[in-house]
């Protein structure tokens, strides 16, 4: 495929995503003028992308390894609830706001490790194990919160995470840092190479000496951890913990990852693609709202984009196959 190297698969895919994003921006500017391009609106788009984005980074790893995690939304909700119970908040007032952060991260990580243990050692299919966690985490969150909304009253926590840094909200920076760390982990470390290997061909990976079970455990732990980070961001954004927070987030996250170019079957993952996928969806929502378009129309458009992206992916995959032979 030497003659086509300029148009090789990954570059073309990224090009397509960037093009789609630019197209959305052009539509935004054309229909609403300066309102879309204003600094405030760009910040809005980035802030909305941040929470979905952070969780999507974790999800990229699990999907690259051929798994799936349906529980991220309810684990995120559970983490917001656990980190904002009155007893946690009292501790945060006494010892510092980090108590809430540690709680949220620990809840996310623990839930992720349980998922991982079930999938790796219990041999429960990922779809079922994480579906069970989705239900259980939601139930536990409702139980702890008594189905009520828990206001965050720890001002230092809100001051830290609702602040701006160098012109952008702190939560956007968290997204940037998590995305950069994710990119490094996937592309520049043994952990990343193993993740791709496990997803591409588990048998070959096993023969190559990769401890698949332990690696799987870590992968789900990582995704749970990103759900915990997302919970911290959500607590700051909404100033409240609730069992309803994160409902259906898993669908947005999986859609963004797959639209970004990570193969649902595993074996290929891209952090850059995931970031672009997340940005495409949050920009789309924003452009629709700027134009005051009905929410039902938004939902249809979202569906069409997901289908279109997956069809394109398959087309690229077929092309790659034919050019490489």
């Amino acid at each position: 495929m030497s003659g086509r190297s300029a148009l090789s698969g990954p570059a073309l895919r990224m090009g397509g995503l960037v093009l789609a994003l630019i197209l959305l921006c052009v539509v935004g500017i054309a229909t609403t003028g300066g309102r879309f391009a204003s600094a405030g609106n760009i910040t809005t788009i980035l802030s909305l992308a941040a929470v979905t984005g952070v969780v999507s980074i974790g999800m990229t790893f699990v999907i690259t390894a051929g798994g799936i995690d349906l529980s991220v939304g309810s684990v995120l909700g559970l983490a917001t609830v656990w980190a904002s119970t009155l007893s946690t908040q009292y501790m945060a007032e006494d010892y510092g706001w980090w108590v809430m952060v540690v709680t949220a991260l620990a809840v996310g990580l623990a839930a992720g490790l349980i998922n991982g243990a079930l999938v790796a050692y219990g041999k429960v299919p990922a779809f079922m194990a994480t579906l069970a966690m989705l239900a259980a985490a939601k139930g536990l969150a409702e139980l702890i919160a008594g189905r009520q909304t828990q206001r965050v009253e720890v001002d230092p926590f809100l001051d830290v995470f609702r602040a701006d840094l160098l012109g952008l909200p702190v939560i956007v920076w968290i997204f940037v840092v998590v995305a950069a760390a994710g990119w490094f982990l996937l592309n520049r470390t043994t952990f990343g190479r193993r993740t791709v290997a496990v997803g591409g061909n588990p048998e070959a990976a096993r023969l190559a000496g990769i401890k698949i079970k332990r690696h799987t455990l870590y992968l789900y732990g990582l995704t749970g951890l990103t759900a915990g980070i997302g919970a911290v961001m959500m607590l700051a954004r909404t100033t409240a913990g609730s069992s309803t927070t994160g409902t259906l987030l898993e669908l947005d996250v999986i859609a963004a990852v797959v639209v970004g170019g990570t193969l649902l079957a595993g074996g290929r993952g891209t952090i850059t693609g995931t970031v672009l996928g997340v940005l495409i969806f949050s920009t789309l929502t924003n452009v629709f709202i700027l134009n005051n378009i009905d929410s039902s129309v938004q939902a249809i458009a979202k569906g069409a984009i997901i289908v279109g992206a997956v069809l394109l992916q398959q087309w690229f995959a077929a092309r790659e196959k034919s050019t490489s032979t």
């Binding site: 609403t32 309102r35 204003s38 909305l48 609730s242 309803t244 924003n286 709202i289 700027l290």
Partner: peptide, 20 residues
């Protein structure tokens, strides 16, 4: 804009609305 009766949904819809 339409949200979904949840805190998170209300936040997201309003952030976009205020931008618009």
């Amino acid at each position: 804009v339409a949200a979904d009766f949840t805190v998170a949904g209300g936040e997201e819809a309003t952030a976009n609305l205020l931008s618009a």
